[in-house]
Design a binder for these strands. Structure first.
Length: 795
DNA sequence: AAGTAAATTTTTTTT
DNA sequence: AAATTTACTT
């Protein structure tokens, strides 16, 4: 049996146990993907399982693509009637919903649209405006992540709302926005990323026949990176495997790095409780890295409390020491990395090298440095092709044509290119849409079809503009429908959206470098559609779904010489040489994780993932100064550096470094940082505030900030005549002050108004009798009040 | 209504 | 520093 010949006994065990639940605990580099792919091939080739009865689920398209490819390789030469379904959670759900969502009977139609994060944010902004809550008080992103977190925990709106205390204005606002958000999406026949999972789970839960259907279809189910599943994904798997229980999950609790997406590590830790008959296979032999690299990774992860003790081993040679470099600033770090890459490439041009960082924003310096060295690189993540404005615009045309209820897509294209439908017109259409509960499209139709135009606050010119827009969309929709009927290629419809909308004409007329680049991107989109036609030919709908669910992370080129990406994106990949850069407190571990022990542990797992990507050579670098928001800050070496066995690290820094101090044992890292900074200050006199990682940007944090301030600053000494500067200062520092007389309604204060009830003061302008307050009253919106007449009470 | 200048914010990580 | 949002001009 040649399929199994490359496997060790444990791996073979994992493949041969085809029936019943199997948990494969696979350490980094232990051949996990090999086991899954061989298992699929084995089921087909040796167990005569029909390929279409097999489902393998991953988290990223990248992983799915890789797996698909390797299964194909293993089965090369075999004639198969069907193919196993290897896909992501989200794509799988779309597939199910496109077929069966109408059985849910919740008003959703098969033509539903998928909203990406951008679209969701727009809905939230609009909702915030409607309830009269200031965006500055509550960032739309915060609300979206609150909603998304709730959804991914498997809660519905009522669960969420019931947990809110009446005193908490912000959470109440979130709850109200949540409600509106759900309504808007439903009206638009749109689902966000999380809804895709929610609706699928609901469909399977409520509908036994459909559940049965998919149970019979997918007799063997495999889940990759199981440690990253969240409660929704967990129940999805549960329903899908109800009948057969032929579930095989692969994962590594040490590599769980998606807690922020509500991934629950207990899903993998408690697998044996959920499936008592589960067979557990441990893969502990690492085939990827040198012993040194494994030792370093192990030394770091050992600092985690919540950790299953296990130790990877390898028969690989000990290998080189870890290489360390301390730079003076971010530029120096990038220069060092580029020079090393240059040298490595010169010695072996085929050696694959990765530069891994914690956040996408760090990529820029490395891009510039590599470009200066004329080194070609491949960058994964960051700006996605499908996120470019022109691409989203054209896709939105197609989305509106397919689902005219999609308000967000409609708003995106209604005046691009300019058609004379401006803010005034749109405000009027939106207002009417909201009061009638109809979509913008329906409202537009009503307005343009009406015989008598009385009562419509629109100029004839605006109405005519709307009419022309409407017919543009209608003829595009007609074209697409015809194309669908006659099996014409998707690319034709894409071209129609670009040309018939006037979009291409607009760009051609602009005739600038930028518009030329945009036109090129649109050509790329057409090319993507042509490629798509060649492969799947599953209709325009599917092409658009693909665009929504594909990020740039997926177009990773396995053979590229130099790849740059975040550590998250690097999971599942391996490289002979890895540069792990920006190892500074506040960056890695990230400042937002530093205060929560649970999150710090996740950062540590992330470091573990990063280190174990390396096969033979690992570089770790950090810089003493770092630019944050355009401001230069001092940076301390990451605590993770300190957790590495120092004798396994070789110092490549010029002169004295943190490492040389740490090795000498003379100074602790923080003391070192201080002395190093002193040295720095000689050449550049810029004051360097120590970057503690704490940022004051949420309003709780701001409240905390003020609290601290008021404690630190003793009460003002006896009233003196304030002069110029002091006066300004006095005005500027009027923050919420509980000890002050309750008469002052300052921003952040809760007040009660005789008519509007409880409200939140947003702004205070003027002085004396002319104090104007901007107050947000839930249910009434923002009101501007003159303090003297408003008759406000503290609440 | 549309384009430009000024002000403000932004950075976790991803489907 | 760069990108996005808002304010202001024509």
């Amino acid at each position: 049996m040649e399929l199994l010949s490359t496997l060790n006994p444990q791996q073979r065990d994992a493949v041969l146990t085809t029936e019943g639940p199997v948990l494969i605990l696979a350490g980094a580099g232990s051949g996990k993907t090999r086991v899954i792919t061989v298992r699929i091939a084995y089921l087909i080739a040796e167990k005569d399982v029909a390929p279409h009865n097999i489902l393998a689920v991953t988290f990223t398209n990248k992983a799915a693509g890789e797996m698909r490819e390797r299964v194909e390789q293993l089965l090369a030469g075999q004639k198969l009637q069907s193919a196993p379904l290897v896909t992501t959670f989200h794509s799988f759900c779309v597939r199910v919903l496109r077929r069966d969502i109408e059985a849910l009977d919740e008003g959703y139609k098969k033509s539903f649209t998928i909203y990406d994060t951008d679209d969701s944010i727009k809905v939230i902004k609009a909702a915030l405006k409607d309830i009269g809550f200031d965006e500055k008080q509550l960032a739309p992103r915060t609300i979206l992540s609150a909603i998304s977190n709730a959804k991914n925990r498997g809660e519905n709106f009522d669960d969420f709302a019931s947990k809110i205390e009446f005193t908490d204005e912000r959470r109440q606002a979130i709850s109200r926005v949540y409600k509106i958000y759900e309504e808007r999406l439903r009206n638009a026949n749109a689902l966000d990323f999380d809804d895709l999972l929610i609706m699928t789970v609901r469909l399977l839960r409520n509908n036994p026949e459909i559940r049965d259907k998919y149970n019979d279809r997918f007799k063997y189910i495999l889940v990759d990176e199981y440690q990253d599943t969240n409660p929704l994904q967990f129940s999805l798997i549960g329903y899908l495997t109800e009948k057969q229980q032929n579930i095989c999950v692969v994962g590594d609790d040490a590599q769980s790095i998606y807690r922020f997406r509500q991934a629950d590590i207990r899903n993998i830790l408690d697998f044996e409780q959920h499936y008592p008959k589960a067979k557990v296979v441990l893969l502990e032999q690492n085939y990827r890295s040198t012993q040194t690299i494994l030792d370093v990774a192990h030394a770091i992860i050992e600092n985690n409390v919540e950790q299953k003790k296990k130790k990877l081993w390898t028969s690989n040679p000990g290998g080189e020491k870890i290489l360390y470099f301390q730079a003076l600033d971010g530029d120096g770090e990038a220069r060092f990395v580029a020079s090393q890459v240059d040298e490595l490439r010169r010695r072996d041009p085929r050696k694959r090298i990765a530069i891994l960082y914690r956040t996408n924003a760090q990529s820029r310096l490395f891009e510039e440095a590599l470009r200066r060295y004329r080194i070609e690189y491949n960058i994964v993540g960051g700006f996605s092709f499908y996120e470019r404005a022109e691409i989203k615009d054209v896709i939105s045309y197609l989305k509106v044509a397919l689902n005219p209820f999609d308000d967000i897509a409609l708003l995106r294209v209604v005046n691009t290119p300019p058609r004379g439908i401006g803010k005034t017109t749109l405000d009027e259409v939106s207002r009417r849409a909201r009061s009638s509960g109809a979509s913008l499209w329906e409202t537009t139709a009503v307005i343009t079809d009406l015989e008598h135009k009385e009562g419509i606050n629109l100029t004839p010119r605006a109405i005519e503009a709307l009419r022309r827009f409407k017919s543009t969309i209608e003829s595009l929709a007609q074209k697409i429908a015809d194309a669908g009927q006659s099996d014409r290629p998707v690319s034709e419809s894409v071209v129609a959206a670009i040309e018939d909308s006037g979009y291409a004409a607009m760009l051609r007329a602009e005739n600038s470098d930028e518009s030329a680049a945009r036109l090129e991107n649109l050509e790329e989109l057409v090319n993507a559609a042509v490629d798509y036609d060649k492969q799947e030919a599953d209709g325009l709908r599917d092409f658009i779904d693909h665009a929504a669910l594909t990020s740039d992370t997926d177009k990773y080129d396995r053979n590229a010489a130099v790849t740059m990406m975040t550590v998250h994106s690097a999971k599942g990949l391996e490289f002979p040489v890895v540069f792990l850069v920006g190892l500074e407190d506040g960056i890695f571990p990230h400042s937002r994780s530093i205060n929560d022990p649970k999150e710090l542990e996740e950062e540590r797992r992330l470091a573990y993932v990063a280190i174990t990507r390396a096969e033979t050579l690992l570089y770790v670098t950090h810089s003493m100064r770092r630019r944050v928001y355009g401001e230069e800050m001092a940076a301390e070496p990451s605590q993770f550096l300190n957790e590495m066995p120092l004798d396994m690290i070789r110092d490549l820094s010029r002169g004295q470094s943190w490492l040389s101090f740490a090795k000498g044992g003379k100074a602790r890292s923080s003391q070192y940082a201080v002395s190093a900074l002193r040295g720095e200050n000689r050449e550049s006199s810029k004051p360097k505030n120590l970057y503690t990682g704490k940022t004051y940007n949420s309003s709780e944090a701001i409240a905390e900030f003020f609290k601290k301030k008021s404690i630190e600053q003793p009460k003002p000494s006896e009233p003196k005549a304030l002069t110029g500067f002091d006066k300004l200062r006095a005005q500027a520092s009027q923050g919420p002050n509980p000890t002050a007389s309750n008469k002052a309604f300052v921003p952040g204060a809760h007040v009660r108004h005789p008519k509007y009830g409880k409200g939140l003061v947003l702004r205070r302008e003027g002085s004396g009798d002319n104090v104007k307050l901007t107050v947000s009253f839930p249910g009434f919106g923002q009101k501007k009040l003159i303090e003297k007449y408003a008759n406000l009470e503290p609440a």
